[in-house]
Each structure stands twice: as structure tokens, then as C-alpha cells.
Design a protein around this nucleic acid. Structure first.
Length: 548
RNA sequence: GGCCCGUUGGUCAAAUGGUUAAGACACCGCCCUUUCACGGCGGUAAUACGAGUUCGACUCUCGUACGGGUCACCA
């Protein structure tokens, strides 16, 4: 077989050789220990928490070491491509504070190791492909999908390892004449690796999170270039990560089964292997079973969902950090005010086992982070979020910024800030009663209390409320009213003998709160009444007393 | 089914082969308290199972079970 001849027959237009590529993509000039990582999504426009988990790992490794973090778009399959998908991905990661040093941009490239879209790198791949053919390490295969199906069915019937190998690899040793006959007939072909592996061979491989893993050598003649001349993931991975000088490949562990093939590819191509970090997966509980997140089935794990729900970007990142490095929480506790990027992230602390996503935990982090916002930041973040997701609320807030800030400032700033707000989408139910147009009676008055009794309390309070009283006097008055209407002013005494009273001062407070805010749960009432102002407070209470 | 990865409370998880097996979230209780919260204190709850190595095993080895992943001209 004249391999040189075959190579030219298959790829007549390719006039470059691997050496040209090596020169075009020289080793990066980086300090010792600098890591080069990449985020390499397909342009579906959709990224979920699992992707963020990996992207954050990449980003930290690169930027913590003074290296490079780049974006490569794996668009070798046009079926997966979504209009504007690249932009969506870049924008969303940007919103979450993940920024690239180089790579694909919404309308082009930024950096000297591109193009960063695999669809535009055909010539690069074919240069290496042609070289492999020249060396007898790859060959064309003219099998149709039907042929391959037939092979697989037969292998399944005989309980053999499925795949294109051994006697099934009918084009592996085809002669030049039959190849030329197919070519002349215009039949499409894929280029396959002439694997040198033997079934059953095994060896160890070192993964940075999984440790020593058992590899069963590849012996399948996998596809390198599809019939459109574009590579599949595997070949593109080897060529790109070599040329782009990636030092650490971070990807989720579902790639582990194809690692043997990748190892063979790097060897055959003469490339030095990068370090691999196969990350555990973020799982969800589905019908009692754990499974990895799916784009199709789990829209609630899309990053856009977290964004629209109003989790501040840093919250999701903080949560990811707690999953990535378990000592992050401890560090955060000791350094509540430092940016998370100050944390010494390490691959060594990454767990090899998958984890279930925990909304309770995320919510707790979110509450804590939001409770530490200054009023100014709370206001600007709220408005920014609301403009996009609750325009009516945004209008109310921006129409009277001082009023909105007063509302948002309740219980904020002290040593023990309130944690009323978990996500920005809570804002509406947190603040609606401050606006007459939004005020509704959300919770009913409990019917264990006589209507007459409630009315008596409310009327009395409406009559006596004095806005100039300080906090202590204000409460003393509530106590006094409680006492005069048969409610126990002291909680301890009430608990000791509840049967002696109509209720407690807690119940009196509840009546006022319900009249004032329409709900059982609200921020500090003294603050609420002062923000609403005397007239509105009193008229709401009086009105409610009359309606009952 | 083959191959690969994994397994410490409900969840995330910490423990150079020697600990009373941390901590956080959730849950429960108590305290604080003017309600709602915040906060403080405390509690329930775990090394999948079986062998082996060892003076000693969560930790090392093997097996079993269970869970997950993967077996495309998709990534």
C-alpha cells in the first residue's frame, strides 16, 4: 500500500504538514507552573450548574497560577448548534463573573491560538489526518450507517464488544483499488484510526482527582474525521488541546470511558498529554434516583434559571466553591469579607464522588450573602434584577429611591442582620405591602379570636398610636393595650397560665401586623410603621377594624 | 451485558493506619425576644457488607452488594 499516494488521494487540497502547525502554535511563554485551561462547550446556548462547576475549576486553576483560561467552541456537530448560542454562553458566564483571557467571542476571536471555533479549523485537523494516513495510521472507511448497524446487531447477538475492529473492520486493510473505486463513485467516507491496541491490554493512568485509574486499552478503529471532513470530539480534542497548549483538561467523568482512545490518539500523533481532571458530577434526585443533570430535563439547573430567580451571581459561585473544596466554608467563615477568588483553591481537595445539588444549602448561602449587602448595594442589585424580571417593582423602587432604600434598610447593617430575603424574586412579597397599589390581605385573621376582640384591639391602637414615641414607649403602649383588652402583656406570665387571658401580647402584635401588612410574617413593625407613616398606618388599622 | 468510576448521618463533607468519627445545611428542642426574624445553646443521625494484612483499619488489599457513568459519523 502506497500511503503517501492514498493521503494525496484523500486530501488533495491539504498542502500543510504538522510542522507548519507546530510553528503556527508555538509553546506559550508563561511563567513556571502557569496552567492553561479551557472551557469547551458546544454552542447550544445552554449551560447548567454542572458546566459551571467545571468552568469555575478551569478559571481558578488558570488565574490562580498566572496562566490562561480560554473559550473554545466545539461546534463540530451542526445539529447541536443554536442560533446565538455562543453569545448566550459568554453572556451568562460573564454575569457569573467567569471571564476568558482569550478564545471565541460573540462575533470572532480574541487571541493568537485560534480560530477558537472547531468548525473553522478543518484545515488544521486535516493536516494531521493526512499525516496519519501518510504514516499508515489512519484509513478511509466507506461503511454506511446501515452497514454499521448490521455489524452492531451481529455483535450484540453474539455478545461481543460492539465496535469497528478485528474482522468487523472491513476497510482496515482494503486495497487501493477498492478505495479508489468508492472514491470515484463519489461515496462518502470517514477516516478511522488504525488502532494498534489489543483487546484486554490494560494499564494505569493518573488522573488528578480520580487518582490511579485502570485503563483498558483501546482497540477500536474509532472515527477521526466524519464524512463531512470535520473531526468528532476525540480527534479535535487531541489536536486542539495540543496546539492551544492546554496544560490541564478539566471535564466531567463521563469522558472517562473514552480516555483510552484519547491516550492512543496522543501517542499516535506524537503529542505530549495534558494533565486530566475528571470531575465528579453534580447530580439531582429524580424520582428517588440520582442522575446527572440533563439539559433537556432539568431547566431548573440552567444558570439562566438561577439568574432569573435572583440568586446573586456570587452566591452560586460560593456554593460551587463549597462543593469544589470542602475547606472553603471554613475559610469563608474566617474571611467573611474577602472575595472568593482569594481562597487558595486546590485540585487536591476535589472529591472523586458525585454530589447531589442541595437547594437548602444554596438558599442558606444566598440569605447570608444578601443579608450582608449594604443598603446601597441592596437597592442597586434589586433594581438591576427587577428591571429585567419584575418591571413593575423596578418602577416602584426607582420612582422613589429613598422610600425603597428605607424599606430595604430594615434590619440591615448590624451584627446580626435579618435574613428575610433569599433571592431577589422574594422582593415583591417582602415589600409589596409598602405600596398601596400592591397591598393585599394575604393571611387571614385566625378565627380562634373573637372578631369583637380583634376590633377592640385595633380601634384602641388606632386611637392611641403616637408616631413620636420611641421604640420602648411604642411597645409599652402595645403592652398597655393588651392589658386593657384582656391579653397578657408578659409572655412568661402568659405561658405559665394561658387560660387566664384572651391571649398574649404576641397575639395583639399579630393583629396589628395583619392589619398593617396583610401577613403574619413581616419585618420589624416599629420600622414598618415609621416607613409607612402615621396616616397610612392608622388608616390601614382603622379600616381593617371596620371591615372585620 | 462489557468496561470504568464511586460508596462516612437526609444532604455537602473532615479525619499522615491510633480522634470520644469534626463542621455546615436541613430537622427537632431550649434560651433570647414585642410579633416575625436574627442570634445563642443543645439534640437526633454515619464509616454499605464480608474476608484479609496489622498490635491497631473510615483509611491498605481482595470479594460482594448497591449507586452512577459509558459503550455513535453527539459532545
Amino acid at each position: 500500500m502506497d500511503h503517501e499516494y492514498l493521503a494525496n488521494l484523500l486530501y488533495p487540497d491539504i498542502d500543510t504538514v504538522p510542522d507548519d502547525m507546530e510553528k503556527a502554535y508555538p509553546p506559550r511563554d508563561l511563567p513556571e507552573g502557569a496552567k492553561v485551561t479551557r472551557f469547551a462547550p458546544s454552542p447550544t446556548g445552554f449551560i447548567h450548574l454542572g458546566n459551571l462547576y467545571g468552568a469555575l475549576t478551569d478559571e481558578r486553576l488558570a488565574h490562580q497560577s498566572g496562566g490562561v483560561f480560554f473559550l473554545r467552541i466545539e461546534d463540530t456537530d451542526s445539529k447541536r448548534e443554536v442560533e446565538g448560542g455562543v453569545e448566550l454562553i459568554i453572556d451568562m458566564l460573564d454575569k457569573f463573573g467567569i471571564h476568558f483571557d482569550e478564545g471565541a467571542t460573540s462575533d470572532g476571536d480574541n487571541g493568537s491560538y485560534g480560530p477558537y471555533r472547531q468548525s473553522r479549523r478543518k484545515k488544521v485537523y486535516q493536516t494531521y489526518a493526512k499525516d496519519l494516513v501518510r504514516k499508515g495510521l489512519a484509513y478511509p472507511c466507506f461503511c454506511t450507517p446501515e452497514d454499521l448497524n448490521a455489524i452492531r446487531e451481529e455483535q450484540e447477538r453474539e455478545k461481543l464488544t460492539p465496535g469497528y475492529y478485528g474482522k468487523w473492520a472491513k476497510w482496515r486493510d482494503a486495497d487501493l483499488d477498492s478505495i479508489r473505486r468508492e472514491l470515484d463513485a463519489g461515496r462518502p467516507f470517514v477516516l478511522r484510526l488504525r488502532s494498534e491496541g489489543h483487546e484486554g491490554d490494560s494499564f494505569k493512568f493518573d488522573d488528578l482527582v480520580k487518582g490511579k485509574i485502570d485503563i483498558t486499552a483501546n482497540f477500536i478503529d474509532h472515527v477521526l474525521l466524519k464524512s463531512d471532513g470535520i473531526p468528532d470530539y476525540h480527534f479535535a480534542h487531541a489536536v486542539d488541546d495540543h496546539l492551544m497548549r492546554t496544560t490541564h483538561v478539566v471535564r466531567d467523568e463521563s469522558w472517562l470511558p473514552s480516555l483510552p482512545f484519547h491516550i492512543e490518539l496522543f501517542r499516535v500523533l506524537g503529542f505530549r498529554m495534558p494533565k486530566y481532571i475528571h470531575t465528579a458530577q453534580v447530580l439531582k434526585l429524580d424520582d428517588g434516583k440520582k442522575r446527572k443533570l440533563s439539559k433537556r430535563k432539568d431547566p431548573e439547573f440552567a444558570m439562566s434559571f438561577f439568574y432569573s430567580r435572583g440568586y446573586p451571581a456570587e452566591v452560586t459561585l460560593e456554593y460551587m466553591m463549597t462543593l469544589l473544596n470542602s475547606n472553603f466554608e471554613e475559610w469563608r467563615n474566617a474571611n467573611p469579607d474577602l472575595p472568593y477568588t482569594d481562597f487558595p483553591f486546590t485540585v487536591k481537595k476535589m472529591s472523586p464522588s458525585g454530589c447531589l445539588f442541595d437547594f437548602d444549602k444554596l438558599n442558606d448561602i444566598s440569605r447570608t450573602v444578601i443579608s450582608r449587602f449594604s443598603t446601597e448595594k441592596m437597592y442597586s442589585s434589586s433594581v438591576e434584577w427587577a428591571r429585567e424580571f419584575d418591571p413593575e417593582l423596578a418602577d416602584l423602587f426607582t420612582a422613589n429611591p429613598d422610600y425603597a432604600k428605607a424599606i430595604l434598610s430594615i434590619g440591615r447593617g448590624g451584627k446580626k442582620p435579618r435574613k428575610d430575603i433569599t433571592v431577589f424574586s422574594d422582593l415583591r412579597s417582602y415589600a409589596d405591602f409598602f405600596f398601596d397599589g400592591l397591598f393585599v390581605q394575604k393571611d387571614p385573621f385566625p378565627d380562634v379570636f373573637a372578631t369583637e376582640k380583634i376590633r377592640e384591639v385595633l380601634s384602641l391602637y388606632a386611637d392611641e398610636y403616637d408616631e413620636s414615641e420611641d421604640r420602648d414607649m411604642w411597645f409599652a403602649r402595645i403592652k398597655s393595650i393588651a392589658e386593657r383588652t384582656g391579653f397578657c402583656p408578659d409572655m412568661k406570665e402568659y405561658k405559665a397560665a394561658p387560660e387566664l387571658y384572651a391571649g398574649s401580647v404576641a397575639d395583639v402584635s399579630m393583629f396589628i401586623r395583619l392589619a398593617l401588612t396583610g401577613r403574619l410574617n413581616s419585618p420589624d413593625m416599629y420600622d414598618v410603621m415609621h416607613i409607612l407613616g402615621r396616616d397610612r398606618s392608622v388608616s390601614r388599622i382603622r379600616k381593617k377594624a371596620e371591615e372585620l
